[in-house]
Design a binder for these strands. Structure first.
Length: 135
RNA sequence: GCGGAGGGCCGGAUGGCCGCGCGUCCCGCAAGGGAUGCGAGGAAAGUCCGGACUCCCUGAAGCAGCGGUGCCGGGUAACGCCCGGGCGGGCUUUGCCGGGAAAACCCGGCGGACAACCCGACGGAUAGCGCCACAGAGAACAGACUGCCCCUGCACGCAGGGGUGAGGGUGAAACGGUGCGGUAAGAGCGCACCGCGCCCCUGGCAACAGGGGUGGCACGGCAAGCCCCACCGGGAGCAAUGCCGAAUAGGGAUCUCACGGGGACUUCCCCAGGGCCGCUUCAGCCCCGAGAUCCGGGUUGGCAGCCAGACCCGCCGGGCAACCGGCGGGCCAGAGGAAUGGUCAUCGAACCGCAGGUCACGGCCUGCGGGGAACAGAAUCCGGCUUACAGGCCCUCCGCGCAC
RNA sequence: GACCCCGUGGCUCAACUGGAUAGAGCAAUCCCCUCCUAAGGGAUAGGUUGCAGGUUCAAGUCCUGCCGGGGUCG
């Protein structure tokens, strides 16, 4: 049923560059990475806030890295988890196609909008926000 | 059927597509890939109790101290939890007295009965200490402001002496309560009922209950004030702790206390002294080392702890019950910047609107449309408690009515 | 996650061993003084003592449960 051209396993290694980009984005875990991203580029959107930076030379050069932040302002643990999961999902769907190699991204949840905004709109938000933050 | 009360269970469903974590199996040298199974809660929450499990402290006994618990019996690994019982209170009903009202009835005091059910930090106030403001004469070995009664005196309304503690007033509380008798006035002064203390008998494992006798009231409240009695408890906590790897070091400086006597071959023994639990006693261990302070080095990371257990389900047996025992079956989250999801479709409870029907007017029934699920997310694990929670289902008990 | 502490007007603090009107300073409002302002003087208002129960005759104080805020530990 799925079109044969985008088989995810990249049968017989059609190109090494494709493999590097389509690999799953690494998750940011260190506090220092979050702080560096916050000091770089910043773009608020209707469902979330996007922060991004291009990694400096000396750090790991290839791969997309992404982190998620939902503070207590978002709500209780249920609301925070739900917001984080939706952010993770749009990152998984959008970043391999629209993200840039060698960049770090941080998605920050909003109080009610992240959990309730239409899912397709949320994906479009990320695409336009990425386009603007790169330029 | 109507009314009242208590308890238990569940707490959105199905499917498609795309994902995440862990286990097992297969393929692969490896990176990785494939298949398959499982994957949040009744509270996962608050962190309020109790344990398991680790590390720390020389052990035991006693004492002291600190903290906790508190009717009795049982359950349990344990508990401040649970079950059963007792007692007290509530709810309900009723008698007497006083007050209000035309009456039904209402309020206050004293007493009796009381189904289910609800509430109770429910040991001790004659072990001791302390406190009880204001008001009031008097607030805890009683005492006497106004009164009441008797006697004496006289300038006839007061003074003095005595009796009394019933009435008034104050207060949260006034040294048994209510009623009758009694008296100069009164009073447990006498009597009945109730309360209280002491003694005896009966029932009960016990808390306690019932009965009889006796006293004539001597015993106010507060222990969620100190305290007494009984019982329990060492301290810290999985960010505990252990291992691996990396790095650094097997440190340095200063100060203090000890290095005693005898035998012997320096190793050993004896004596004395010192040290090790808050104290004492006993035992043990240590004394060519010990202790204190400061400086220097490290704290990114991996693994274990970390999921088979006071576990879950069914049947049988014991017990009023909590619960216990036996047999059979099952495997039921293990993340770690933290997985357990995202999205779509169908169905859908509460609730809202409209129309119709019915009516003892509060509602109920039917149809159509809208609507789209409460509180809430494991973090070492169990047993409880507490708190939050839309709605639904089931069971039990009591009273009344109807039928049999 | 585990453990610990705190909570009184807008702010900073009091209130003894439970005892009756919860007090003081700053800030606020009004008035006086001054040509005006500041300073000074006078007056006024402002409090469910974080919330809810309980013990007691009586609770800011004692006890229990919630709520909110802060801190420590690798």
């Amino acid at each position: 049923m799925t079109p044969p051209e985008d088989t995810p396993s990249g049968q017989t290694a059609s190109g090494p560059a494709v493999l590097a980009v389509s690999a799953r984005p690494e998750v940011l875990k260190k506090r220092a990475d979050f702080l560096r991203a916050a000091r770089a580029r910043y773009r608020p959107g209707p469902g979330f806030v996007l922060q991004a930076r291009q990694r400096a030379p000396g750090e790991e050069a290839s791969g997309i890295r992404v982190g998620f932040t939902c503070s207590k302002k978002v709500g209780n643990a249920i609301a925070r988890n739900r917001a984080k999961r939706r952010l993770r999902e749009i990152a998984r769907l959008v970043l391999p196609e629209a993200g840039r190699d060698g960049w770090d991204y941080v998605l920050i949840g909003r109080k009610n909008d992240t959990a309730t905004r239409d899912f397709a709109a949320l994906q479009d938000d990320l695409r336009t926000a990425l386009a603007q933050i790169h330029g």
